[in-house]
Amino acid sequence: MTLKSMGAKQTVLVVDDEHMSDLMRSVFRRLESEGFNPIAVVPEGPRLTGDDYETHTLFAIENESPVAVLLDVRFGEYDTDRFKGLSILKKIIERDNSMPVLMFTQYARGPYRDTAVTGSLSVGASVDFIDKLASPEEVVLRLRRLIGSAPKTIKIGTLFELEPENAVVYAVNNGRHQIIREIQGMKLAILNELASAMYRSEGEVVPFSRLERFSDGEDSRASLRVRIRELKVSLGKAVARDFGATELIINVRNRGYRLVPPTD
């Protein structure tokens, strides 16, 4: 039995003058449940302008060292601040063009997005746009991809956790983590590939061609099938479950495999 220590949470800076709205509260909640530490930029004063947000954002980036910034386009009540978010974006990129910025806007497409994209792409910045009506789930997925680096831990439902860096898979039971030692080498590589795809996008199927790199023998497809079966058996044994054909790792006919988080 090995107990797992939880790493420090990654900070995400949220810059939005409506950060106290119900809509934004649901985003905060989701970010927290996904292991992020969301911090809102809150300038103080009676009549705040976009410039106040700009100053405080740049200051917070220096002090909080966030992994990403969630930034609104519109600020304040003044017409001059209608697109202040774009000018804050420009300032952030000028200082650190590797900082991932997810723009929260009504203009997920259209001329203003195009202007901002053109401006940010020219310096190779990591910028994406998302509609403010997007579900918190979608926000987290987009943020993850924007941050890009593989997470320390990928949760596979509530039953398993994978640590790609340490090459370890855990079975989780009542908060206790037990290493599944049977899963190593090619089986671990296959699970890592499937879990990474699931982490990036819920519905992504990993094509056979990508997984067959981790199988051997003359018939690589058959060999892959065997490894997947072994993988399911090992995972099932660790949680006293028998995963059927339509559970955990699903064969999508003629295409590839897909990891589906198991239910309790």
Partner: peptide, 16 residues
Amino acid sequence: HDMGRPLRRILGKQRE
């Protein structure tokens, strides 16, 4: 943007 405002409020309440 303005038309989205009422929907954002309704959606926010619903999620809460």
